[in-house]
Every structure is written in structure tokens, then in C-alpha cells.
Amino acid sequence: MLRNALEPWHLIIVVVVLVVVFGSKKLPDMARALGKSARILKSEAKAMKEDPAPPASVQTPPPAPGAQSPITPTSVESPR
């Protein structure tokens, strides 16, 4: 059924509809913006591939016996 889905006359109809809807003056600006967005997307995807992935989980070594953990709150005297 969709063997010949996109033929040249389909493309001509799409172009004519775009020109009628958006106008011939706005189409170059839209194409320029689309190209700029595609370039930005491509550069961001490339940057994500080049960056090393952060470790899945960061494990901290257990504290030494008798050592106070830096996370443990200490007692604070309140002023009277």
C-alpha cells in the first residue's frame, strides 16, 4: 500500500503549501533557524560523547576505628 509513498509531485505539493502558508519571505529565515538548531544539537551531542561519564556510585571508605566522622554533629552550647 505504501510502496511508492513519496513521489516527486508530493514534494512539489508540500513546497507550494509551505509557500502559501508561511510566505516566501519567511521561509529562508525558518530554514536558517532550523539549520542553526541542527548545528547546536549536533555539537551538544558530540560534546556529550566526548565527556567521560561520571561514576555510577561513589563509595567512601569506612572511618578508622575511634575517629570522629566529619558528618556527625557535635554538641553546641546555647548562649544564656
Rank of each mutant, 00 (worst) to 15 (best):
P61A: 09
K49V: 11
T72F: 12
P55W: 00
Q68S: 04
P62W: 12
L27C: 05
R3L: 12
P73H: 11
V19K: 09
A67H: 14
S24V: 08
P54I: 02
G23L: 11
P55I: 00
A56N: 04
V16P: 01
V20S: 03
E77W: 09
Q68E: 07
K26L: 12
V14S: 06
E44G: 01
E7K: 12
G23H: 10
I12L: 15
R39G: 02
P52I: 03
G35H: 11
A53W: 02
E50W: 04
I13S: 10
S37W: 10
P65L: 05
A67P: 01
E7S: 09
A47F: 02
D51T: 05
D29C: 06
D29P: 00
S37P: 02
D29M: 08
S78L: 11
L34H: 10
K36H: 13
P63Q: 06
L34I: 08
A33P: 02
V20Y: 04
P52G: 02
R80C: 02
P79F: 03
F22A: 08
S24K: 06
A64P: 06
E44Y: 05
K25P: 00
P28I: 03
G66Q: 04
D51G: 01
D51C: 03
L41C: 14
V21A: 03
M1A: 15
L41H: 14
R80Q: 06
A64R: 11
E44W: 05
P28K: 01
V58S: 00
F22E: 09
M1V: 15
A53G: 00
K42F: 13
S69E: 03
L11E: 10
I40L: 15
M48A: 13
V17W: 00
V58G: 01
P55V: 01
I40A: 15
P79C: 00
R32E: 15
R32V: 12
A45Q: 14
S75H: 13
K42S: 10
K46S: 14
P55R: 00
P8Q: 08
W9M: 08
P65A: 06
L18Q: 01
P73G: 12
V19H: 05
K49D: 13
S78K: 11
S24N: 05
M48V: 04
M48K: 12
I71E: 03
P73F: 14
P8F: 08
I40G: 10
V19F: 05
K42D: 07
A56G: 07
E50P: 00
A47M: 13
G35D: 13
P54A: 07
V21I: 10
K42P: 00
P61T: 05
N4S: 13
V14E: 07
T74N: 07
P8T: 04
P63T: 04
K49P: 03
G23R: 10
S37T: 09
S24L: 12
S24M: 11
S69I: 01
G66H: 05
V21N: 00
S75N: 11
V58K: 00
E7P: 01
G35T: 07
P28Q: 03
F22V: 08
V14G: 04
D51E: 13
I71D: 03
A33E: 15
V14N: 04
V16G: 02
A67W: 13
R3W: 09
G35P: 00
F22P: 03
S37G: 10
A45L: 15
A45F: 03
M30D: 10
V19D: 03
V76N: 12
S57T: 09
S78V: 07
V16N: 06
P28M: 04
